[in-house]
């Protein structure tokens, strides 16, 4: 599931390899809201009885950005294999709740400003583009440390998500104590 307003970019990525799982496009970040997802890539485990058995956490697919993330991606992969094969979980319900990232009132409002921005971008009548940017800016003011909003907005306003603006954001986020996912699966000391 891609947290992405740009379905063309999603299709481009998702068709690079032959994938057997469904790839969904979540333009309005509905699933981010439902499951407390504040950055990508992230994973949530749901069992056969519709129970959340592992909360959203940063789970890179590989060690490509390990120097930046300090995450050993194999740790999550191994936990996942164990759960799929034997049903054995690494967290009980109390721990799942402890590590969920619940939204602040401002983050919830930021998500709605972002939704208005995306609806305006999709409609694209005279003046919609400018108004869309205003709502994206408002969303960033309300949720300055949420990656799905700050970094997710960058391509929507023509900013390089690996450029100066991104590193400025990373600086702000680091100074604020790197808030976000709490679980830290596979996090290693440098």
């Amino acid at each position: 599931m891609a947290l992405d307003a740009d379905e063309v970019a999603v299709r481009e990525w998702a068709t690079k390899e032959q994938l057997t799982m469904p790839v969904l496009v979540d333009k309005y970040h509905v699933v981010a809201d439902l499951y407390g997802i504040v950055n990508v890539p992230a994973a949530v485990w749901v069992d056969e009885n519709d129970r959340i058995v592992r909360p959203a956490d940063s789970t890179p697919g590989s060690d490509l950005f390990r120097d930046f993330s300090n995450v050993d991606s194999e740790v999550h992969h191994n936990l996942l294999r164990k759960w799929v094969r034997s049903g054995e979980r690494d967290l009980d319900d109390a721990r799942v709740r402890e590590f969920q990232v619940k939204p602040s009132p401002d983050v919830q409002l930021a998500r709605l400003h972002r939704r208005i921005a995306i609806a305006l971008r999709e409609r694209d009548q005279d003046g919609d583009s400018l108004a869309s940017r205003e709502h994206l800016t408002r969303a960033e003011e309300l949720a300055p440390l949420d990656w799905t909003i700050r970094r997710g907005n960058m391509p929507l306003v023509g900013v390089d998500p690996f450029g100066d603006e991104f590193f400025k954001f990373v600086g702000e986020w680091t100074n604020a104590g790197r808030p976000g996912f709490k679980l830290g699966t596979g996090r290693v000391k440098k």
Binding site: M1, A2, L3, D4, D6, A9, V10, E12, W13, D26, V31, A32, Y35, I37, V40, P41, A42, A43, V44, W45, V46, D47, E48, A56, T59, L80, W83, V84, R151, G152, M154, P155, P161
Partner: peptide, 11 residues
């Protein structure tokens, strides 16, 4: 079924 909900993006 067991489901892995994976969030990613192009950005």
């Amino acid at each position: 079924r067991k489901r892995l909900l994976l969030a990613w993006s192009s950005w």
